[in-house]
Design a protein around this nucleic acid. Sequence first.
DNA 1: TTGTACGCGTTATCAA
DNA 2: TTGATAACGCGTACAA
Lengths: 345, 345
Amino acid sequence: MPVTIKDIAKAAGVSHTTVSRALNSNPAISPETTERVQQLARQMGYVPSAVAQSLLSRRTQTIGMVVTTIADPFIVKVVEGAEQIALAAGYSIFLTTSHNKPEHEMAVVETFQRRRVDAIIVTSSRVGSLYSSQLDQIRVPIVLINNQEEGEFLHSVTVDDLQGAQLAVAHLLALGHRRIGYIGAADRPKSNGRRLAGYLAALKQAGVTPDPILMISPAATGDLERGRAGLEVLWAAGATAAFCYNDLIAIGLLLACRQRDISVPAMMSVVGFDDIEPALYTNPPLTTVHQPRLELGQLAMTMTLDLLNGQEAQDRILSCELVVRESTSQQISESANGEYSITSR
Amino acid sequence: MPVTIKDIAKAAGVSHTTVSRALNSNPAISPETTERVQQLARQMGYVPSAVAQSLLSRRTQTIGMVVTTIADPFIVKVVEGAEQIALAAGYSIFLTTSHNKPEHEMAVVETFQRRRVDAIIVTSSRVGSLYSSQLDQIRVPIVLINNQEEGEFLHSVTVDDLQGAQLAVAHLLALGHRRIGYIGAADRPKSNGRRLAGYLAALKQAGVTPDPILMISPAATGDLERGRAGLEVLWAAGATAAFCYNDLIAIGLLLACRQRDISVPAMMSVVGFDDIEPALYTNPPLTTVHQPRLELGQLAMTMTLDLLNGQEAQDRILSCELVVRESTSQQISESANGEYSITSR
DNA sequence: TTGTACGCGTTATCAA
DNA sequence: TTGATAACGCGTACAA
């Protein structure tokens, strides 16, 4: 069993109260006893019990964090950002994955309540619908990152999907593309809707009429598969460029292009979303929309700690940046006279 | 403040002792009161305090897990495996990253002690040297995953680096390669040494004399860079194949090959180690040694829980599998008479 | 300057 | 069948 202040008290010949005060450098204690007690504590390898302290202070200095999966490089960065801030403030994180399973999420929340976490951070979940019944029970602050549902009662940090999508599609338009496809993900309704809106906004700004056949959302088991399926439709529809809901879909599309000998970017320009690490290793390296993932996590945690300190916290929306790599190029075609010219096909 | 058993006691007109017993379905309590109390607890939204329970039981049902970084896809899988098992057993995980910084690791251990975690799991660290002074202070079980130092005092789960490396190099040898390079990582001394040993063992078994110039360990800022640097040396030394310490190094090498127009696998076969996700997306897809990462985490956690239940735990070594993709092929060269023949160059 | 007493929420012991 | 009491490790109001 670990050493307690009582053990130290016995060894030092003082009361446990004095030990407690000495260890906390309480000025009421004489410098000599303070020094003596502290040295003794060190010798005996004393480490205060956060459990006992929590019981008394009613604060566990603990944050519960729910993510769908840490296999997603996007989420990893968010967690890293959150951890940095938490650690610096003396908080520890209970990290749990939900794999998007409602029953899992319920259980996680229950666990967090039992553990008396001071606050909860949830990423990319449909909190609104699922938790609503449990939510009023929870007294601790809840901060949502990129959540898929609207809800006024919670605090949130979100990435500006619309602006990011607009950036991506504007880039393709500037390169001369007019038949630009969008491959969406219907299972993330909110963000998918916003990215689609950005796509449409960019087209509108360029005076291009959207073609319904180019806006698809293939049902598939995984994002990679979705990209593969997307290519078939878009290629048949005469698209010269594709904007994908995320990088994994884009990578799936890239793989399918290679199999069908569709050269990227010469025959098909591809843009992703997220800027995950693998996007650097693809062939060609993927042009994509970079989300400030680290910052997302940092901000969410900062916000959480602010709330715990009784401060107000404003919801935040972070903007994205376009990272141009090699999967996009001018939409060119050889014209009759042998010269290259931009075409709108 | 959360509801306590005292609140329930007041509402039910019984003592808090009775409430506690009723909630735990103690047979000593009459069925009527039990039912009444349980229903009341549900209505009032009672959730027991793990903090108070821990203080009494001296068990927190909590595991501290230290990893170098969750940005490493390898580690992510290990964590996932560990989490599965922990969750099923009612344990929660404090996940912390150390980024290989000694001072960080010390702080983490200190935090875990304060939080009174029941056990600690550490991945890929040099525990032996760093922790030795703190180790005797810690009374809880410590399980090491793929640790970089020998030590009899701790429990461990390790992947069979030697066997995995042997598999990889034997594969290259079987394809006819004789000038096979090894690009190592000196900052992971233990596993690097074991993989090098596997490389040498395979060569020996095939009767190939190792050439020191082909066994390198480039000093570089990151693994990707290491791969780049490695290519220069190996290419100059006339290597036709390279076995890399890990996939990231292999990917770095792949990127460098593309820049220098060295076609893979026609001119250079490449094998990695780990089988991380990005290895699927490279061009060409990477042949690599698959580590049972999920199992590694599961086993470590199972072992930990066994130890907590007072059982003995045997150290384990898991074996690897070779995953052949498209970055390796027969070592062929056009001979004078126009036919293809295997050469040893 | 130091010590006594109490409480944080829960369970276990003993008594009624 | 139920209740009063103590204990887990710590911090704090109050007393000395």
